[in-house]
Design a protein around this nucleic acid. Sequence first.
DNA 1: ACGACCATGTAACATGTTACATGATTAC
DNA 2: GTAATCATGTAACATGTTACATGGTCGT
Lengths: 182, 182
Amino acid sequence: MSLPYALLGFLNYIPMAGYDLKKILNDSIKFFWSAQTSQIYRELKALEHEGYIVSEVKPGEKGPDKRIYSITESGISHLKNWISEVHTNENIRNEFMVWLLFSSQIDSGELYVEMKKKLKEYQKEYQSLKFVENRIRDYLQRFRKEGEDFYWKIVLKRGLYDVEAKIKWAEDIISSLELKKS
Amino acid sequence: MSLPYALLGFLNYIPMAGYDLKKILNDSIKFFWSAQTSQIYRELKALEHEGYIVSEVKPGEKGPDKRIYSITESGISHLKNWISEVHTNENIRNEFMVWLLFSSQIDSGELYVEMKKKLKEYQKEYQSLKFVENRIRDYLQRFRKEGEDFYWKIVLKRGLYDVEAKIKWAEDIISSLELKKS
DNA sequence: ACGACCATGTAACATGTTACATGATTAC
DNA sequence: GTAATCATGTAACATGTTACATGGTCGT
């Protein structure tokens, strides 16, 4: 699993609350790893139980209280230990492809509409990644981790290449469906 | 979840055993949806419990007995019902990207080696997809589903575009690491 | 007034992974 | 003889999703 290590990785930048972690995940690697808030809170509890992080409740300046988590020495070495092993798993669960495979019963007009929607979705994703690029620059400055720029860049590049492939694919399918019609 | 529908989809082609289903998954959409045999057997049991499939044990001609599953009328309508709704989920769990993001502590020589390995892996995947193309032609003929050719083709095309993007990315990173060194 | 955002969580359920058990046949 | 393939499963555990609960603040 990567979630606990992603959380430790971010907490190693700076202490923060579960809510902030959820946001930073969304603002950065949600294309590669996403999690529900409920899962994040559960993981944080587990990590604290293991002694990898500690928490303290801070009264909210505006709004509710926050439970701020900080990484411990033990957490840092646990994280470093995980990083020192190579993790190369790339897992895909593409329900859309399974659906497409068996979708011969739906009519090609409906498929056309769906592919148009998908293309828009992919284009939005592309825009979103471009924004991520800027947000990450901000984060790295704020956390004084400018040296890690390189790693963020290669991950982002992968995101961009992936989305570009999806866009090209959707465009291809759309034009082949248009040929079919005429 | 897609697994039960993928199983129903294949059993809608022709009755077969859990072992065969595992093979056909590997030979076709493993790049988009994979499953352990233990999970397949569990799902089959559940599907039979729901009445979507029925099974019968056939003595193995050579080797062990086989439990052959066939889709029922109820199963067919369950599958068609699922297909009639659009399923557009594309889920990624890319541990490799999480690892890369926080991998600044490992040295760039090691990263270089890993990226070379990855490139080879992606190239193998590309070859494997090319084989899938042929195997699928065989399957469709055997199951007399030549009309579904189009849907298989678009799914395969997506697989190819995705792998091409990965290869391009790996090559990029490798050459930027080479520049760094010199 | 009303929805969006802030903030933390619990409980139940669904899905996926790992380890293990069994035993025959085929290929080298 | 030994590894690979055929074939089916159980049990325990890990991870992910969905639904729900609570209650304050901010903008329009």
